[in-house]
Design a protein around this nucleic acid. Sequence first.
DNA 1: TTTT
DNA 2: TTTT
Lengths: 171, 171, 171, 171
Amino acid sequence: MAGSVNKVILIGNVGADPEIRRTQDGRPIANLRIATSETWRDRNSGERREKTEWHTVVVFNEGLCKVVEQYVKKGAKLYIEGQLQTRKWQDQQGQDRYSTEVVLQGFNSTLTMLDGRGEGGASSSGGRGSSSDFGGGSNSGDDYGAPSQPSGRSSGGGGNFSRDLDDDIPF
Amino acid sequence: MAGSVNKVILIGNVGADPEIRRTQDGRPIANLRIATSETWRDRNSGERREKTEWHTVVVFNEGLCKVVEQYVKKGAKLYIEGQLQTRKWQDQQGQDRYSTEVVLQGFNSTLTMLDGRGEGGASSSGGRGSSSDFGGGSNSGDDYGAPSQPSGRSSGGGGNFSRDLDDDIPF
Amino acid sequence: MAGSVNKVILIGNVGADPEIRRTQDGRPIANLRIATSETWRDRNSGERREKTEWHTVVVFNEGLCKVVEQYVKKGAKLYIEGQLQTRKWQDQQGQDRYSTEVVLQGFNSTLTMLDGRGEGGASSSGGRGSSSDFGGGSNSGDDYGAPSQPSGRSSGGGGNFSRDLDDDIPF
Amino acid sequence: MAGSVNKVILIGNVGADPEIRRTQDGRPIANLRIATSETWRDRNSGERREKTEWHTVVVFNEGLCKVVEQYVKKGAKLYIEGQLQTRKWQDQQGQDRYSTEVVLQGFNSTLTMLDGRGEGGASSSGGRGSSSDFGGGSNSGDDYGAPSQPSGRSSGGGGNFSRDLDDDIPF
DNA sequence: TTTT
DNA sequence: TTTT
């Protein structure tokens, strides 16, 4: 279907230290549980109430997995941009079950640390080995005023990690 | 938890005519199934591939329910802004089951029709009984240049419907 | 035009203590400058580089203005959801000038504090004079499992403030 | 600054056929004007009112520029995801002027066609010449259920074009 | 299971 | 300058 968008944006806290698994061919997958909550004052009683929602976030991106592994701990506040995916599986009785997760996999996926935790590292978001162009020199000569750097990517302590920068930033 | 965000943005097509239920006290609830999909070309085979994701959308807002009831049909392309909620229920064996849905309930929820369908109506996004006033005069005298109308709300055929005019809150 | 969306999402730091003006009829307007920045490693030199972008945010909502007034100080980290607006004005030479701002005015506007600053207050997002009720009883009897509270709104120290409880709309 | 987000999401119509320029080193830059609008009913007069906002969108991404060049015409309805940038320039009197634009440049930038226009093409979003991996084979052996394709990218007629796929889809 |  |  042409013209489709599937985007989830979360800001919340990590409920437990992340779990990192590996696929058979060695690719990492990180699992996070993130809590978002809303508070309001009850109309009748006037009491303050709160409802917490728990989200399962699955990070398939190698670079973001490294970030998660190094910096994300229980309690960390994160900004997450990913997409909704529902996975089908069978329970022990052989019945179909479905789990809906927020997946950080492709482009347009982002994970940003919003508190001071995890700072000090120089890590960035991964990359598939090969470097590639971007930003810097490639825009030189640009007479339009185009910024000579990429956007949406960043690195460094406590930073902003996009799936993106992947291959353009050699480590 | 302070400082939390839970937002889902979808653009996709409705898989079937919506289903409208009513609560015991007469409030409508609309259920929609929305498909988003991505296509890409396989790296190895070069074939075009597509993956469709189905989302369950639940509309608790009375105004948006009216919009859904009147205008949204199978095949309609919608822009949806809501939030993720996971609901726990028991299956027939008494086992806990969980369903994750995109809920349009509070403020910051939006449903916009992106194709021509549903046009011609004068319906709007609900409203507390009637009024459906807005902006206009209330800003007169504003010396700042503030637009004299609200934003984020609208009405009219094939239009943009926000939860805003929240009709489920009796004053 | 039916089916239109105009949304800006920012997470950044406030550059200076906010400025609150008032319209002739006493409505508050808050102005904020918010910095977002990206860092990346230069492809060629390998140096770490950073680019900061400054955004002008204008808050027309009375409730959010109160929040800004009470809690938002220079350096605060905010989540902002608003819309783009370009305002035309004349400079001293009588020439047309344009300023583009992120406006928090209608529904779907949000301002959330992401750091601890501003905590301890009981303030909420405004509200039509007082009340600041919500959800609660109005959903009782709901046989669907609909949460009995609103979403997207909240209050409390350091909290999450939506335009919702729109106090500038006299009923 | 760590932990920063700068995101603009627009759905609107293109006001005129796009303009494509080229930098000195041959990179394309597309300029679009996109209209978003809101309609509402005036509280006092009951009249239907509308306000249109015009946005300048600048596409630095080569792949997205191709898409724009081939498919985007006056009147097209687009979904745009980019970021805010304010550019400083001097007018003829040598005075500083500022223009704020929605820039599609880095990752996390998207342009999707929401109407039927432009269909039939097989084009996708560009790429910097070199191909690269993605999806497909690289996930084979994945025992986790990870989808074996990327997300956020797509191509094809009337389709969804992300900055992303750039280098993985050889043309 | 987080956070306030 | 779009669109409804």
